[in-house]
Design a protein around this nucleic acid. Sequence first.
DNA 1: ACCTGAACACCGTTCAAGT
DNA 2: ACCTGAACACCGTTCAAGT
Lengths: 234, 234
Amino acid sequence: MTGRPARGTARRAEPLSATGIIRCARELVERDGLEALSMRRLADRLDTQAASLYRHVQNKEELVDLVADSLFGDFESALEYSADEDWRATLVRVATSYRSFLLARRDAERVLAGRFVVGQNLVRLIEPVLEALRAAGLGPRDAAYSLYLVIVHVQGFVLHEKAPLSASHAVGEGRLSALTSIRAFLEEFPEEDFPRVHESAPYLAEPGLDGRFHYGLDVLLDGLALRIGVRGAD
Amino acid sequence: MTGRPARGTARRAEPLSATGIIRCARELVERDGLEALSMRRLADRLDTQAASLYRHVQNKEELVDLVADSLFGDFESALEYSADEDWRATLVRVATSYRSFLLARRDAERVLAGRFVVGQNLVRLIEPVLEALRAAGLGPRDAAYSLYLVIVHVQGFVLHEKAPLSASHAVGEGRLSALTSIRAFLEEFPEEDFPRVHESAPYLAEPGLDGRFHYGLDVLLDGLALRIGVRGAD
DNA sequence: ACCTGAACACCGTTCAAGT
DNA sequence: ACCTGAACACCGTTCAAGT
């Protein structure tokens, strides 16, 4: 291999640990996207062979699981807890922080999507939130369900928010201005047969999704408030 | 190629249309899962070459988009509309049907996840639901947001529901009985430091998710009811 | 004990050449 | 106009062989 002479004969500094592999994998995803994450490319960046990675990681699936856990760990340690909050403020803070977090890292929503990363990081994250819900008067079951509801909502929302528009609409035009193509498509439907689609078209194909996110979150929290009681009397 | 002599010299019956390709792709996913869907294997089943598929489909991404639209079409045409329903009954029916639908077809949630399949099928599906919400008194914006909220919720929920448990927990044991391993993991945390995780552990690692689904859906619809007014007075 | 090289069985996509 | 064969540039994973 004459292609990478810069490193010379020096071996890599670290002796190829699992954490080193995960850190490198995260850098790779952040820089080039999830589809760029291959065992071979990762090995290349670590100055080793793909086969060597299998000494530290069972397979690619486990590697992505570990990357997911690492991402989740970042989110957990970035969250700050203020004790003098009511349950609603806590859930709003966690939900909006989680959304911002997922929006900020490349392909994070796809790495985390449909992965139940049960580990230290998750436990540390949910303990104070469960506490807030229990203090508000919910039982252990409802507290668990409610927390789960918020997390799944945010994850599902961001998955849609960051999704590339389906290829049929993203034909030639630019990134998110393909939304105007969708809006036009929706407005093309005859108003007599599809009056509701017609009038809601602008809201179904909006560029910014902040309003939609907070509408959904508010609806959800209003529903929880009914179960908790207006003033959280325990 | 001596490997497939059964078909003899006969060409395939149909002249390789886009719809034929999509139908075959769906059968392949249903039988062998999403990772079995490759251009080469698909071509093989159609008695042709992978390269020939590119005459009818731009690339694999578009193929999966078309499969998603086809799936969505099935769901839309399976839904029946009874006019004498209130908005809440309509949303419950759509949400539970959508969940059952996603649970019933192999990998459907992954095909649909984060894909905004805007087409005829979607429009036909949402028109009557939007109508129900408008009739209940919501404006065009809130109707759109509310419908979107329910769809995203179901999709996010099922994505978690069908997700393979992260590899670290699904080590040796059977499919869903790995849940007991997760529950044990959660209960291992010291009760003094993590009392809430401890007490909620059984609910965080349940085998059946029906209760959780309906809890979430009810919370959500309760929240919407507040916006609509108890008796839907428009 | 740890890593390498090479191989196995695959991928998506392109394109000159055929009919 | 439509399809084929062959090639290009990749994949994940395994395993005998090396140090």
